[in-house]
């Protein structure tokens, strides 16, 4: 499990680099865009996804833990987190979480 950063969408703001608890994200020298240098060291905490305002970072499960190519990104709007999940066949699902409400469980 790890993340991928789409260089076409990355604005190079560096917010994700700042918060990664493993300091695994680095800046490309020429483009200033961010890339993950150590994808196998990602904890999967999604801190970087939550920082990205450009939907550039997607989260996936490694094949060694049952991953089959489904990806996920998150967008924050008005105290809601919208988790966008895309399956390899193109099917999409959005799960919205109201951050002002507690978990049911």
């Amino acid at each position: 499990m790890s993340i991928r950063i789409n260089p076409d969408l990355c604005a190079g703001c560096g917010n994700c680099r700042e918060v990664c608890p493993g300091s695994l994200l680095f800046k490309e020298k020429e483009s200033n865009k961010t890339y993950i240098k150590y994808p196998e060291e990602c904890w999967g905490c999604t801190s970087c996804l939550k920082e990205c305002k450009f939907e550039a970072i997607s989260y996936y499960l490694g094949a060694d833990m049952g991953g089959g190519g489904t990806t996920m990104y998150v967008k924050e709007e008005n105290k809601e987190l919208h988790w966008h999940i895309t399956r390899p066949d193109g099917k999409k699902k959005i799960i919205t979480i109201d951050t002002t409400k507690a978990n049911s469980y």
Binding site: M1, G44, T46, Y59, Y60, L61, M65, G66, G67, G68, T70, M72, L81, W83, I85, R87, K93, I95, I97, N103, S104, Y105
Partner: peptide, 22 residues
């Protein structure tokens, strides 16, 4: 549905795994 949400708030990989498996 509530479990899918609860896991997104602490261990998102589990929610993704459920959705991945269908």
């Amino acid at each position: 549905e509530e479990l899918l949400k609860a896991y997104l708030n602490m261990a998102p990989a589990q929610t993704l795994k459920w959705l991945e498996r269908g």
